[in-house]
């Protein structure tokens, strides 16, 4: 039972969750959301981007190192980096 609770998200689940979190931001143009799009291209500035990453950490229950968080520039990078880190 506990194994179920701490299991990792599949890539498609992670993609769905990351996308849903980004859509909550008023400045995001949902029509521009693609895996290769950068946070800037979909309408997030630097402050929004940091907020989006900490929101993802909080909602997904995954804590990133500063080093990993700074590597995130595109939606695909967010999906990959959150996927490789274990849930807390």
């Amino acid at each position: 039972m506990w194994r179920f609770l701490i299991r990792k998200f599949s890539t498609s689940e992670m993609e769905f969750k990351v996308t849903e979190i980004l859509k909550r931001f008023n400045t995001v143009d949902s029509s521009k959301i693609t895996p290769t799009a950068t946070f800037k291209e979909i309408g997030l500035d630097s402050l929004d981007s940091v907020e989006a990453i900490v929101a993802m950490e909080e909602i997904l229950g995954i804590e990133l190192s500063d080093e990993d968080a700074l590597k995130i520039n595109t939606i695909q990078e967010a999906i990959n980096i959150f996927s490789k880190n274990p849930k807390n």
Partner: peptide
């Protein structure tokens, strides 16, 4: 006010520890 808005959210403390 943008900072205030972030800090009042559930992940406000996490934002502080990132910045």
């Amino acid at each position: 006010s943008r900072i205030a808005s972030i800090l009042e959210k559930p992940y406000g403390k996490r934002f502080i520890s990132r910045v």
